[in-house]
Nucleic acid binder design. Structure first.
Lengths: 221, 221, 221, 221
DNA sequence: TATGAATGAGTCTTCATTCAT
DNA sequence: TATGAATGAAGACTCATTCAT
């Protein structure tokens, strides 16, 4: 308890603090929170800076523009994960059916459930007004993401586990419910009462069941 | 003449003022077009007014604010459609599988394909910033819509055509890809090149196939 | 005297005054004064608006940008004068020597002496930083101005009054001292004491004497 | 050792600090280059520091402010030249006409052509905003410069080569085109296409011809 | 002396909203 | 009712200057 008496003097916040190393991370954190909460254009850079405990100017020391800040948030939270995820799936042992289910469940656990899914919602909501962001997101997230899913499907087809299907189209069938889920969570799900009755995990498993049922080779005796 | 005596206070319609009554409608029309095309914040009220052939000041005579205008657009363009659709499905003759497919294809034909789907995108995009709209939309659109789909599923279950399933959850599986499709069309679909390769009709049929495959009773010999 | 007692109530400055007709002129006036006093980039649009008695927003109602405002000032005060000046010189009766002297003296009387000459100084000073302004000024002022002077020289050459000279080069010789004079007036002339001893009129007459002496046909008996 | 005792406080120069003494010079050099290239306000102190190979903070160790740096650049680069030039002209042998031509041609060769002429342009451009610089420039550059030219003219008058003229005014006639030329080179000459057609050397010779034609005694037979 | 991270005042421009006519 | 001139708050970004190290 004497600690709390000692600290007031030590804790006097210095006006200027030099912490180059940690600044970008703090800013990225603040930016993620605000972008997810308010959307891209409704988020003011000054607010991001304030939340990170720095001045407006400092933010522009680390990021060239608001758009650049956003891209960094996307890279930090999503794009940079792909190498790890790809690795994970290259070393996956088990049926492709399990793999597909694992992929969607992980997706929900690692992204969908977290605030990061707000980024997806934001991009889809504001893509019209910020074409460069749409382009960037497509390149850095959608393409690698689709490729990952396509890889799973092709694995199943090649092993004879799945029927020969148009994997390009099937990717959309896999991705659509996930994106729907993330959008929903950050729009109607956050407001409307009845919308919350949908259980994401249950929904995902049902989707996987449907997909597998459709894609699996059915051997009639 | 007695006609004019019957409803003088509620609907007195002297020729000279006829025009005035259509003003809100013209503004709503213009607003729909622009909101769908540009999104909420990128749409300038002056442009809406200009498109409706009136001045900026006049718009504020009918709508308290831009937000109010947005609400009015949403109200005007959606809730009214359900009675007709419900009627149509009550008189539908054919299998429930056909009925489901017809429902989704019609949905795309009548809403998805048209600019009205932009409203769905708009509402979902802006729900965070306009909780009241989200609530309204859920009540007036989502609930009736889900009820309609649930009706089809229950019809199939009752007739023994579908397996006994959790229709509440299944509704989400049916609705999700449609909403995804409409969102996509108005966001990434309008920007990203690769996004355009998805063919909506094909996608819908695949979804229906999947759903039916999963829900249909499979009688093994 | 009772007037002054009556007026206080009538004179209460209204917050909003509608005077579309006079606004641009008032703004142009204020802009000219401030641009000349402070230069282009040091002049803040808000200050221009304040000096014209309107808000910042109002300025942008009449001029698209600060640069646009500046161009309007140039047009209003210089470029628009050329038709009149050209007319004047086409109808000039007298020797070309008189005409040249008249041109430079008028130039000083109508532009050099007035605050408008500050525009010339400003453009030359800031041309580097605002290439579009430089381009505009060259097109709208320098070219027509040079053409006017060239016209006088050619008239003299054609009539046999002047020697056959390279009029293109001679134009520069005519123009240089005038521009120098205007620059000087708005830079060193405004600050340095000794710089003010130069008498512009006397300087101009000397320049004309020099020029004519050099260009005139000298017939030795 | 006594050396170090003689000037320890004022000019102690240990090897390790030698470098420091050249810092201001390097900064001045960098500042000259950038000020001439971009003008005063468009030059960023960070860029000056970078070009001098030091950090932004170091610059402010030697110069109180950007304005102070500007003043130092002006001081460093001009006043020192006059003693040498004066000497040269006191020992000149030849006609005063040749001398005048030589003076202007040298002026162009040594100053006008080089980046140093940018200083003249800079001072005249910024004189309004920096009255102190204007005063300084007049005292240290304009007065000595005019004196030099006046000396040439008086030499010619005294020798009977030139007519008896108002040398004070004539100095302006000599100087004006040179200053014009230097200003032009660094403003419109750098931007406007048509402005580049003027050939400086040709222009100077024409000016000298004109001047001499006007000042020389013409002996009619 | 040297660094460079941090600051924050300054500036143009947009646009929803108001209000005199 | 209708107009459209006027308002002013808001927001991204810059950069000279400061100061902890």
């Amino acid at each position: 308890m004497s600690d709390t008496l000692d600290q007031p003097l030590t804790e006097q916040v210095p006006k200027r603090e030099r912490r180059k190393e940690s600044r970008p991370g703090e800013l990225l954190d603040a930016a993620l929170a605000l972008f997810v909460e308010k959307g891209f254009s409704a988020t003011r850079v000054e607010e991001v800076a304030a939340r990170a405990g720095v001045s407006k100017g400092t933010l522009f020391l680390y990021f060239q523009s608001k758009e650049d800040l956003f891209k960094a948030v996307v890279r930090e939270n999503i794009a940079n994960q792909f190498p790890g995820w790809n690795e994970e799936f290259h070393t996956f042992e088990g049926t492709s059916a399990d793999m597909l289910r694992y992929a969607l469940v992980s997706w929900w656990e690692r992204i969908g459930k977290t605030r990061v899914s707000g980024i997806t919602k934001l991009v889809i909501s504001e893509a019209q007004n910020f074409p460069e962001i749409a382009r960037f997101y497509e390149e850095e997230v959608i393409k690698p993401g689709n490729a990952l899913i396509r890889g799973i499907l092709e694995r199943g087809v090649n092993s004879g586990e799945f029927r020969t299907i148009d994997t390009e189209q099937a990717v959309h069938a896999v991705v659509a419910p996930m994106i729907f889920l993330m959008m929903w969570k950050h729009s109607m799900g956050a407001c409307a009462a009845s919308a919350q009755i949908m259980n994401p995990e249950q929904f995902i498993h049902m989707q996987v069941d449907l997909l597998l049922f459709g894609m699996t080779q059915h051997h009639h005796p």
